[in-house]
Design a protein around this nucleic acid. Structure first.
Lengths: 303, 303
DNA sequence: ATGTCAAATATGTCTAGGACAAAATAAATG
DNA sequence: CATTTATTTTGTCCTAGACATATTTGACAT
């Protein structure tokens, strides 16, 4: 009976880990990992254990490590590597740590309540920069150390999204400028960064139109025309390969009218270098506020 | 200058259309479409026009057509096929058609207002079954005919999500039974069905915990334990291949404790046949209400 | 020691052509 | 007309190889 362990074929592993089939096969040849068993037709079957390792490896690669250093290491080895490398250990406020405790205790309702309290106390601006953003980093970090599971991160994201969406609804103003369209490119399915951008922009009295995630490039162009948007904002998480970000953004820029600004942000764009002209890279969220002001100044100067 | 038309490599096309690389290559061999140009290294480069056709084809396949019938047809041919085949043309109320007009006019704010009015007038139950659900079908249909673009559908989804999330927040009760966990499997990124399920279940006084989309199977199992969930609800859109649905659901069922109910729903499960025991397939949303009542009856009977 | 440039290596993604299982359709049976 | 069986269709997997791009290493000059 114990031979009925969980085995996944390569397609499932691709979806579960975000690592492509080609990559999985070439890793097997180059690094000897993952080393799946085979079924009667030589098809790969990955044990759940290796899939877990792959998920961890994916995350490590996302933060800049190289495959040769991490692919094939055992779970303990990976953890050892993790605890020594983080380097700069920011001091997290006790309040943030309390949020994390709520996540670990699976207290979704309590977490949401606490977040709403923090929002009301700090105001949206500080809430985003001093609570949500560091909390995201903290949670991502905890995930990396194995202190927080994927499903706990999912629950956390849901609460944040819920709180932010509610708040944004109350501060939206259709007469604001510039008119900003927000979305992500196909392949990028994280909406949290987008939502934080919308909140920040709305706070600066921009008029935001949220398109959700994964809008095809040609459709983005049409949407910009239809909404007469002044600015297109694209968000990229750290999970996006830098090469994909680069080619995607350049294709968008090429297809977009010249008078439409293109603002890109998120952890996935920080690795970008030599960004082409006509593309503005946002660092912290506050850059968006500055960009809005700069945009208005440029308009009043030209008009 | 005119030679700078948009060309996409196979990886981008996979992401933009949702059609896998292997499938794209084998279609080329079998049907002679898509027939991309090649770069200096024989790599495929797909013109934007073919990518548009592929998106249309993908949608047609999702509603049950066969590749041999649609792959390779020109845009006019596809449209001709569309307008004749729908067959059962349900009569849509003028109110629904007005919603569609708002979508086409890109009046996001007005649309949301109208939706909220409908919600207040009809109540959540009727709103879901008599407005949202038929509207989804109508929008999907209009998309198919080329009357609505992808970005317009995105905008529409955002408004629905916004309205539903707000409403759900107000009717959530942490003491309800059964305790239901909601999510989708990796590969399924549509959250709308999930949200509609949450609304319906909350209305039946179940206690819902939303995990968002794409939770890995092993994590779902852990989440069920952590939240002591009585029921796991998985949602599948029509875009999910039936085979993926089947294998995914069966793997979940195998990994789940026997006393946890597994409810699956959405357009993606209607194609399923010979469903294994321990898996309950939901048709219309109202099935969820019935399932909640049945669950409570079974509990009081056993306990 | 630090900066710059070129060579070497690492890495992901693409190619071809073939194979097979599962699903869907057509055909043959009761 | 309903069921079963054969046939076709279709997606996904396989191996093995190639190459562009990104990163690192090494050499050299500042």
């Amino acid at each position: 009976m114990s031979e009925e362990i969980s085995l996944f074929n390569i397609g499932v592993v691709e979806r579960e880990t975000g690592i492509g089939k080609d990559t999985l096969r070439v890793w097997e040849k180059r690094y000897g990992f993952p080393l799946p068993v085979r079924d009667q037709h030589e098809d790969r079957l990955y044990p759940a254990e290796q899939v877990d390792q792959l998920r961890l490896i994916k995350r490590l690669l996302d933060i800049g490590m190289r495959p040769a250093k991490v692919v094939g290491l055992s779970y303990p080895e990976l953890n050892a590597l993790l605890t020594e490398t983080p380097g700069e250990e920011p001091v997290y406020s006790s309040e943030l740590l309390e949020f994390v405790e709520l996540i670990k205790a699976h207290q979704g309702g309590e977490l949401k309540l606490a977040l709403n309290l923090a929002l009301l106390r700090q105001g949206m601006g500080d809430f985003l920069s001093k609570t949500i953003h560091p909390l995201n980093l903290l949670v991502g970090d905890a995930w990396l150390r194995g202190e927080i599971r994927v499903f706990e991160e999912h629950l956390y994201s849901e609460q944040i999204i819920s709180v932010l969406r509610t708040a944004i609804t109350t501060i939206r103003n259709p007469r604001g400028t510039p008119r900003v369209l927000l979305t992500t490119l196909p392949g990028e399915e994280h909406s949290l960064g987008l939502l934080m951008a919308e909140a920040t922009l709305s706070l600066s009295r921009a008029y935001c139109t949220m398109l959700g995630v994964q809008t095809p490039i040609s459709e983005i162009v049409l949407a910009v025309q239809a909404h007469q948007a002044d600015v297109l904002t694209l968000s990229f998480s750290s999970a996006m390969p830098a090469a994909q970000v680069k080619s995607g953004v350049e294709q968008v820029r090429k297809a977009l009218p010249g008078n439409v600004s293109l603002w890109i942000g998120g952890a996935g764009v920080q690795k970008q270098r030599n960004v082409e002209p006509g593309i503005q890279v946002m660092g912290p969220l506050s850059d968006l506020t500055g960009a809005v002001l700069a945009w208005r100044a440029a308009i009043s100067g030209n008009g």
